[in-house]
Design a protein around this nucleic acid. Structure first.
Length: 730
DNA sequence: GTGCTCTGGTTTTTT
DNA sequence: ACCAGAGCAC
């Protein structure tokens, strides 16, 4: 205790009950088992101890694998049989390794169409694919060296996110699977709306004497979590939401109705897209065989953030021994449990595949030794995981992370701004990032930056796709594509004055029992002589005739603008966003293509960037949540608001696994820094949730020699403000 | 049935 | 700051 930065006895740690102890024990066993299968360049005598150039492929390739990769990376890239887990530490060249492995597979004779590459974002998938194309460009044109490469089409590599892959499979094999290929995807907020609608229609009594019925957001979360974590709704509510236990029966019924509703209307939510493919793989042997024969080389990135259905998907595809599988991940960076990700998948890999090999990438190419020393100390605090120790061969130690504490969030923001201005002469604004646990924690910093003329961009923020007017127009597009989409209908119908829940439901039902026609809009018994409904009828029919997505969109927007004007005062401002939407539409050849891409790969750039696609990113400091910063790096990183209660979040401190994830989140934040890491905290933080005034336990737990402390306190005394530097003060 | 306003309870992170 | 329910007028 004495060598830590601060006395950790000030914090309350979660109680470990027997069930969690048992779980830890099982996970430890699995980890130990796989550690026994660890292979290193030395243990396997990489290329029999000879130079890699003796390998028939490596020796003759135009790609110089052995000099481009370090020995562990080379081992990972060339171990192409069986099942392999690669533990790739932060900044260890994971993407590079996947790129070279893909290239190596192809040079070894794997056909591009037999390769399946699953990543967490489409951007990551595209990047790997493009880098492989560049690597092999020379060989593909060279008809002498390796003749089988000549004329290969690398676009045949299947790469993307789990969702985009499963979406493609559902549509491509809709005939074999007996499903309607014209389904629409519900994003999270559509799914919430659907649940809300069904809740109202099924006449559940929402208000109870004792306990209010959960809101739509909670319900959606509950249903999704229950599916992704394979926990019965009943058990999930009892363990995680005991307050609403009296509503269990209603919620279970609601979940069933929601499911029926989606199937009846050809709607798939995010969870369905994956679990439908899994259940077809499970039940349809012909389909399973077909998929297993197609994808012979599977690679999965960010395996620590997969959920149970995603693991099942991989397991079904990779069931035969001759399908090779490499999963890559870092158990220290699993930070998506709230979205159903299961950190156990990566820890239990040895249990699923007892013969699997383990490879570790521990050389870090990102951070200075001083920063690595700190993050390795953080890593030691994580209870469960594979053994790892990041190292760097940089000759210069660099500066230690700085822990700065200030009287309040304003002083904290000032500190950050001061540092940026101090370091700016040698760096660009692009070289700085401020990372926060929650998005609102950057408000004070944004104000300070504005006052000091420091340019910044906020990542995360309000999503373009989540804006009301964008959702409205997209609902119109969805109606055209899938006239069964009652969620979209309901959204549009309630937009008009004089039409509320009840009328909208009646019209929606009439539309559904009258497939292929918008006729009910004209029915005087239903439309209350609303002229806009009659106009909508004409617009939809006309829009159906349009050739391109852009033309269709133009018509719909033209109709929608006057409607928007009746519901929002700032409609002009909002209308600006339609330019962006039109630009996006021009990139798509069909409505389904357009809708799919917006749902599965929504643009998360700010509107300003989207509307000037040609302009280069301006030179600006990045302000982001830690989650959104995953996979990125900056020379100078600030992690702010490090108060116990915000980091770890107060809602996560009472449960072992939740606290562990917060710890990993802090680890992710710190590993983004290349040369300078600043950890900052205000003296206190107060909100309806409580009053927090201790520095984050994650700061306190590590040995004090790994950081530099910088504490300044502004006293509010009777004589006015005075400043003091007191190292004893926290 | 619809739409407005008031009020009190709520707020983590997001492909 | 944001949303959902209640209460009320049309």
């Amino acid at each position: 205790m004495t060598d830590t930065l601060f006395n950790t006895q000030h914090y309350t740690y979660p109680h470990l009950d027997d069930s969690i102890r048992l779980k830890i024990q099982i996970l430890r066993q699995s980890i130990t088992r796989l550690e026994a299968n660890l292979i290193t360049p030395d243990s396997v005598k990489l290329f029999n101890g000879a130079e890699p150039y003796d390998d028939p492929v490596l020796g003759h390739s135009s790609v110089d694998y052995a000099s481009e990769l370090n020995r562990s990376q080379l081992l990972a890239a060339t171990t192409i049989d069986g099942k392999v887990l690669v533990i790739a530490g932060a900044g260890s060249g994971k993407t590079k390794t996947l790129t070279y492995r893909t290239s190596y597979l192809i040079e070894k004779g794997a056909s591009p169409s037999s390769i399946l590459l699953l990543t967490f974002t489409r951007k990551a998938a595209d990047e790997i694919k493009n880098r492989v194309k560049n690597l092999l460009a020379e060989s593909l044109l060279d008809s002498h060296a390796s003749s089988h490469l000549n004329g290969l089409n690398l676009n045949a590599i299947t790469s993307g996110t789990f969702h985009s892959f499963c979406n493609m499979i559902l549509r491509r094999y809709s005939g074999l699977l007996g499903i309607n290929p014209k389904f629409t995807i519900l994003d999270t907020s559509d799914s919430e709306d659907a649940i809300d609608l069904i809740c109202k229609e099924s006449g559940i009594v929402r208000s109870s004497m004792k306990q209010a019925f959960p809101r739509k957001k909670t319900l959606q979360n509950l249903i999704s979590t229950s599916r992704n974590r394979r926990i019965k709704l009943h058990d999930l509510i009892e363990s995680d939401y005991p307050d609403i236990a009296i509503h269990i029966a209603d919620i279970e019924q609601l979940a069933k109705n929601y499911h029926k509703y989606k199937r009846a209307n050809h709607l798939y939510d995010f969870d369905d897209i994956i679990s439908q493919v899994v259940s077809h793989l499970k039940n349809n042997l012909k389909f399973r065989k077909l998929i297993q024969d197609t994808y012979r080389h599977v690679m999965v990135d960010e395996y620590q953030d997969t959920n149970y259905p995603q693991k099942q998907l991989i397991d079904y595809i990779c069931e035969p021994d001759n399908v090779s599988l490499m999963v890559v991940g870092d158990d220290n960076q699993s930070i998506y449990a709230f979205r159903g990700a299961n950190y156990e998948n990566i820890l239990l890999f040895g249990k699923s595949y007892p013969e699997a090999k383990l490879i570790k990438l521990e050389q870090n190419y990102r951070s200075t030794p001083a920063i690595l020393e700190y993050v390795n100390a953080l890593s030691k605090q994580i209870t469960l995981g594979y053994q790892k120790n990041l190292f760097s061969d940089l000759p210069v130690q660099g500066t230690k992370p700085v822990m700065a504490r200030r009287s309040n969030d304003k002083e904290e923001a000032k500190f950050i701004a001061d540092k940026i201005i101090e370091l700016k002469p040698e760096l660009d604004y692009n070289d700085f990032a401020v990372l926060s646990r929650t998005s609102f924690q950057s408000n004070q910093i944004q104000l300070e930056f504005m006052a000091r003329y420091i340019p910044f961009i906020v990542v995360g923020g309000i999503k373009f796709i989540e804006k009301r007017h964008i959702k409205d127009v997209l609902a119109l597009v969805k109606i055209l594509y899938n006239p069964n989409d009652s969620i979209a209908w309901h959204r549009i119908l309630t937009l008009f004055r004089g039409i509320g829940e009840v009328t909208a439901t009646k019209i929606t039902q009439a539309l559904n029992s009258n497939p292929g026609s918008f006729q009910p809009l004209l029915d005087p018994k239903l439309n209350k002589n609303n002229e806009q409904l009659i106009e909508l009828y004409g617009v939809l029919n006309k829009a159906e005739q349009q050739e391109t997505v852009a033309e269709t969109l133009d018509l719909l927007i033209e109709f929608y603008l006057p409607v928007l004007r009746t519901v929002e005062d700032n409609w002009r401002e909002r209308a600006e966003d339609f330019r962006v939407l039109k630009n996006l539409a021009r990139e798509h050849s069909s409505l389904d293509n357009f809708l799919e891409n917006l749902a599965l790969d929504p643009p998360n750039d700010s509107v300003a960037v989207l509307s000037n696609p040609d302009k280069k990113q301006p030179d600006a400091v990045t302000i982001s949540t830690i989650h959104s910063a995953k996979g990125l790096e900056w020379p100078v990183v600030f992690v702010n608001a490090l108060v116990d209660g915000l980091m770890p979040h107060h809602r996560s401190v009472s449960e072992f696994e939740a606290l562990e994830e917060e710890r990993k989140l802090f680890y992710v934040a710190c590993t983004r820094a290349k040369t300078h890491l600043y950890l900052t905290a205000p003296d206190y933080f107060s909100s309806f949730a409580g009053y927090f005034d201790k520095v984050s336990r994650f700061i306190s737990e590590v040995p004090k020699e790994t950081v530099t402390i910088d504490v300044k306190k502004t006293f509010k005394s009777e004589q006015g403000e005075t400043k003091s530097d007191d190292p004893e003060w926290w």
